[in-house]
């Protein structure tokens, strides 16, 4: 029993780290993998989702709906930004980095000026359960479940729906897609909106567990980028396995020697992976096809 409870405790921690990495990274991975845009304002879409979710919850909306509302608002804001700024900078990756970084700073400082230095939290829903020597938060299990559901949902979206096929066609051969009558501008817009919406989803889901401040997006950013760098451009062959591997590494090291070791392990893995597999896990898995 003691062994089982230790095993469960480890799996729970690895799963928790996995969920955080997947949810933090998948929006970034879609925008980067499908559009080649490195979105430094990713953290601010997370912020947007978190603030909308917390505000809606405080106004009496049930949490699941608030989370979805947060994702929706972040997605719409993302689409507007794509129209206004990002669209004009396709094929200029360095310029996009500067532009999205600027957007990120404006959003953080704007939030501070308009909404103040902090927003009251809503409290984590659900309770806790005990197994062996440890007690666990039930909400964290919901997060793990949601991370997996998000991956499945995205897989179905890109392989089984008309939008998924049009999106993949547009990303692979934009001119051919255009010639076949696909509104590629709209597809880009929707894809960016999807990425922003996923960031908003992460923000909404983690809002009840975190301090709500204008800089909260930066807490996700390092982990998100490490996961995308390790994973490479493909979300299913890259982000998901990368998050699983990093989750296990992080949980094991943190349990052994504390948070610092966990952070070091995460960054060391990223360095080793880009040295050995410059195009990340998915680039390596797809090397035959490439």
């Amino acid at each position: 029993m003691a062994f089982l409870s230790e095993l469960f405790a480890f799996l729970y921690q690895a799963g928790d780290a996995f969920a955080f990495l997947v949810l933090a990274a998948c929006g970034l991975a879609i925008v980067f993998g499908m559009m080649g845009v490195i979105n430094l304002a990713h953290g601010e879409f997370i912020l947007c989702g978190a603030y909308v979710c917390a505000t809606a919850t405080r106004l009496g909306m049930p949490l699941p709906l608030s989370v979805l509302l947060g994702a929706l608002v972040a997605g719409i804001v993302g689409m507007i930004l794509e129209r206004l700024v990002i669209r004009h900078l396709y094929h200029r990756p360095l310029d996009t980095i500067v532009a999205t970084w600027g957007i990120s700073m404006i959003a953080t400082q704007g939030t501070l000026i308009v909404l103040g230095s902090t927003l009251p939290g809503t409290g984590t829903p659900l309770g806790s359960f005990t197994l062996g020597d440890y007690s666990f938060s039930q909400y964290r299990l919901v997060l793990i479940g949601t991370a997996l559901a998000t991956l499945v949902g995205l897989y179905l979206l890109f392989t089984r729906t008309r939008f998924g096929i049009l999106a993949r066609a547009t990303i692979q051969m934009p001119h051919m897609a255009q010639a076949l009558g696909i509104n590629t501008g709209l597809v880009y817009s929707l894809t960016f909106g999807l990425g922003a919406g996923l960031a908003g989803l992460a923000g909404g889901l983690y809002a009840p567990t975190m301090t709500l401040v204008p800089t909260m997006g930066s807490a996700f950013l390092v982990e998100a980028f490490v996961t995308v760098v390790v994973g490479g451009a493909d979300i299913f062959l890259g982000t998901a396995p990368a998050a699983a591997i990093l989750g296990v590494i992080k949980a094991a090291l943190t349990s052994w020697y504390g948070q610092l070791a966990g952070q070091i392990g995460l960054l060391l893995t990223a360095i080793v992976v880009i040295r050995v597999m410059p195009r990340g896990l998915s680039g390596w898995l797809l090397r035959e096809r490439g």
Partner: peptide, 22 residues
């Protein structure tokens, strides 16, 4: 004793480390 780098926001494992030694 555990030292947490500034900016860390996820504490599940730290909480478990504390529970282990009561």
């Amino acid at each position: 004793e555990e030292f947490i780098p500034l900016g860390v926001s996820q504490f599940s494992q730290t909480i478990q480390n504390i529970q282990r030694v009561q």
